[in-house]
Amino acid sequence: MAIMIKSAQEIEKMRISGKALRQVHNAIAPHVVPGASTMDLERIAVAKIAELGATAAFKGYHGYPAALCTSVNEEVVHGMPNEKRILKEGDILSIDCGVIIDGFYSDAAVTYAIGKPSEKTRKLLVVTQASLEAAIEQCQVGGRLGDISAAVQEMCEAEGFGVVRDFVGHGIGRSMHEDPQVPNFGPAGKGPRLKAGMVLAIEPMINAGGPDVRVLKDGWTAVTVDGSYSAHFEHTVAITNDGPLVLTR
């Protein structure tokens, strides 16, 4: 496993990429409302990415057709924007997006409740987001990769939620996916030692029910096997001697 160590200058370029990505997410957020289609949100993202002089990281990646992944309800990841997928009260929507600026990638995801969620759904979103923050706190020089993974698993399973095994986080930099893989499960104290200059895309994917998922016939959209809702939050995080630096905050 060859984990790329970024220089301070490279991390600064990734911070610029991450700042642009946050602007894309911020542009989309007000439009995540009942009656909007997921393709409406795609168009907003495409326009904002162009305005910022960035490149959509997902579009064309292994043939993926869009700038966003828009995953609704039981869709875990890689849901594709569609004119006919109309958001309604009680839905949840995960929006995953990446951009490239000056050759460097950033990657971030957020899950929204459409209207007023049920108490169980609200708890799913709160706990998943909190598990991401707990994982970020483990991004300390001298720690282990497994410390990040364990932070997510322990928090989410303690609340009765299922931690997806089939999809994981990843290193990121000049490529979308670099070593190491960053699972959301596993024991603390294991795995590669964390070093300054590592940059990780940490992304808990957590189901309200069991952890099992399957991919639909479109070859992309992953859904929960039991039909339960799924939440997804992600940040791109640099490990520095001063602690974690969230590049997509």
Rank of each mutant, 00 (worst) to 15 (best):
I5R: 15
I5Q: 14
I5W: 08
K6L: 12
S7M: 07
A8Q: 12
A8K: 12
E10C: 10
I11G: 04
K13F: 04
R15H: 11
I16V: 15
S17M: 00
Q23L: 15
Q23A: 12
H25T: 06
I28M: 03
A29R: 13
H31R: 12
V32M: 03
V33Q: 14
V33N: 09
P34E: 13
G35T: 00
S37C: 10
S37I: 00
T38F: 02
T38Q: 11
D40T: 09
A45H: 04
V46R: 12
K48W: 08
K48S: 08
E51W: 10
A54K: 02
T55E: 13
A56S: 15
F58I: 04
K59E: 14
H62N: 15
P65T: 06
P65Q: 03
L68E: 03
L68W: 08
C69E: 15
N73H: 07
E75D: 11
V76K: 05
H78S: 13
G79R: 05
P81H: 04
E83N: 12
K84V: 00
K84A: 12
R85N: 12
R85H: 06
R85A: 13
L87W: 01
E89C: 06
D91N: 13
L93G: 07
I95H: 02
I95E: 00
G98D: 00
I101L: 15
Y105N: 14
D107H: 15
A109S: 15
T111R: 01
T111W: 05
Y112K: 08
A113P: 05
A113W: 09
A113H: 08
S118W: 08
E119H: 11
K120H: 12
T121Q: 04
T121K: 04
R122A: 15
K123Q: 14
E133K: 15
A134V: 05
A134T: 10
Q140S: 08
V141T: 09
G142Q: 06
R144N: 11
G146S: 10
D147G: 08
D147H: 04
A150D: 04
E159F: 13
G160E: 05
F161W: 05
V164N: 13
R165S: 11
R165C: 06
D166I: 01
D166F: 11
F167D: 12
H170G: 11
I172G: 02
I172H: 00
S175Y: 10
E178P: 14
E178H: 08
Q181D: 14
N184I: 01
P187I: 01
A188M: 05
G189S: 11
K190I: 15
G191I: 02
P192I: 03
R193P: 01
L194E: 01
G197W: 01
G197Q: 02
G197M: 03
G197R: 06
V199G: 07
V199R: 09
L200E: 02
P204E: 06
I206M: 09
A208R: 07
G209R: 00
G209D: 08
G210P: 11
G210F: 00
P211F: 06
D212T: 09
R214I: 04
V215T: 14
L216Q: 13
G219Q: 01
W220D: 07
T221Y: 06
T221A: 11
T224S: 15
V225R: 03
G227E: 01
Y229F: 12
S230T: 12
A231D: 04
H232A: 06
E234R: 12
T236V: 10
I239H: 00
G243K: 01
P244Y: 00
L245S: 03
V246A: 02
V246N: 05
L247A: 04
T248E: 09
R249Q: 13
